[in-house]
Design a protein around this nucleic acid. Sequence first.
DNA 1: TAGATTGTTAATCGATTAACAATC
DNA 2: TAGATTGTTAATCGATTAACAATC
Lengths: 212, 212
Amino acid sequence: MVNRSISKQTLLRLPLYLNYIKQLGDNRPEHISATTIAEALRLNHVVVRKDLASVSSAGKPKIGYVTADLVKQLENFLGYNDVDDAIIVGAGKLGRALLAYNGFQACGMNIVAAFDIDETLYEEDYFGKRVLPMDKLMDLCERMKVRIGIIAVPAENAQAICNLLVESGILAIWNFAPVHLDVPDDILVHNENLAASLALLSKQLKEKRSAQ
Amino acid sequence: MVNRSISKQTLLRLPLYLNYIKQLGDNRPEHISATTIAEALRLNHVVVRKDLASVSSAGKPKIGYVTADLVKQLENFLGYNDVDDAIIVGAGKLGRALLAYNGFQACGMNIVAAFDIDETLYEEDYFGKRVLPMDKLMDLCERMKVRIGIIAVPAENAQAICNLLVESGILAIWNFAPVHLDVPDDILVHNENLAASLALLSKQLKEKRSAQ
DNA sequence: TAGATTGTTAATCGATTAACAATC
DNA sequence: TAGATTGTTAATCGATTAACAATC
């Protein structure tokens, strides 16, 4: 079977569909159609239909998809079923919030531990997760074959930490520091700039109001 | 002057350019070209040139842009210079991390306070920021004319909180709860699903490795 | 059969890339 | 003048939307 490549946009929408169905809870109908989902999420119904067709071929005219099957197919496709480990570097406020956040589990992600130079953090237990000294990072990554690293350190230190992660065998980096990271070609980086995101929302609001 | 509309993608890239220049610090040259920025950020130089042209018209052939001017123009354009207030609802781990995060300031965003039903949070001081009881929300929003709300409550409560925010005069919502929010047409919503973002990175990594 | 829904094929739209002219 | 860089115009690419055929 040819793995017809799925667009970035589709990949970003699929979790929305899954969330929507899951959140229906006990009201979840046995069958669900692309049209229903599209109306609920205020999306174009053709977009939703195409997106669903890329993860399932079990849609039946007039009926739609078997809800339970679609959930499984979405979860499988998105990889929510096989668990993947990740570590965090930087156990400041954000790092600790991510460490303690229990929503990752539903998406098949497991945060193994956080690392920080601040010794005062090593004692505490964050919902079963620990903050470890930096010198344990490389060994733990190799031993547990951790391939995903989360950077939650100040911008000044991000590149150095990034280098350390790459040296430790990390292949994908989720970067919360507001700097561009220089990495070898084969390393995947996703940048998350929370402050810039909020500022963008503010800008869009201002623009919208002045347009009226 | 006609405000030629700027694409969503450009809006997402402009902060990268600004970050890059700022992070140069004392090494910052007097002039900077689109080509330089493009190479540093591994972007196509035509993209960068077009993006910069949308915020500045002071680029000089052979020389580039006056670095200090470009920084100002980017900051002005992105609204980092005039401060905008926002409130947070939900002072769990994530809500408190955002409340205490001091990176918003650089982007012209000021978090006024967080709100929560948990009384044990009201006493503490989070770097000068307070967690307040829910019943103070509407009054504070009206009094301070706060227009931006951040939802950091569990998914089950997000829609109710969203309704309350809209009622309180909030016009833009940054939603960290993994649910679609139903809002009136004139309310701006930006969804941030951290767990789904990390899972997507994990999926992309798996795909890349199996492709090799 | 009629109608709702799927899935496909073609048309449109928008963003990126390529080619080139202008200029300091 | 030559070369680096800007900025513009045209070509390409990819995603969305529209139109329609297939089917339960």
